[in-house]
């Protein structure tokens, strides 16, 4: 059932996925602000140095962005998959959490 080429193709894709996955870890630098966009519109930009919570409500649901100890993360999202919460704490430049159902994106920037 399994041919040589099958194994080659499958391992090539797995390798590619692993590389894409690891790529961001090689170029990390601490971020300064977190930018939140809802529906492609900038919702707000917040400094990572000030601890605060930002309530975000969209037409598709609500979520909360928590900034604590230089990291930002989503909490208490009303979306069904909670993928945005599982993306964890964002602290380095380029770290991103996406909530597809709420069309909300939080991205850490260096400015």
């Amino acid at each position: 059932m399994v041919k040589k080429g099958d194994i080659a193709v499958i391992s090539a894709i797995a390798f590619l996925a692993a590389m894409l996955f690891l790529l961001p870890f090689f170029r990390k630098s601490p971020g300064k602000t977190v930018k939140v966009t809802v529906n492609n519109k900038v919702f707000g930009t917040y400094s990572l140095n000030d601890d605060r919570t930002v309530k975000i409500s969209t037409e598709n649901g609500r979520t909360t962005l928590v900034i604590k100890n230089g990291a930002a993360y989503f909490e208490g999202s009303t979306c069904p998959d909670k993928l945005c919460e599982k993306m964890g704490k964002l602290s380095s430049v380029g770290d991103t959490a996406v909530c597809l159902p709420l069309k909300t994106v939080a991205e850490v920037t260096g400015q």
Binding site: K3, G5, D6, A8, V9, I10, I13, A17
Partner: peptide, 19 residues
């Protein structure tokens, strides 16, 4: 394209297609 290759069968082609 992958099925055209003799060494690749259903498994490889389908995995690549899914990805």
């Amino acid at each position: 394209a992958l099925l055209k290759l003799r060494s690749v069968g259903f498994l490889g082609a389908s995995a690549a297609g899914g990805a």
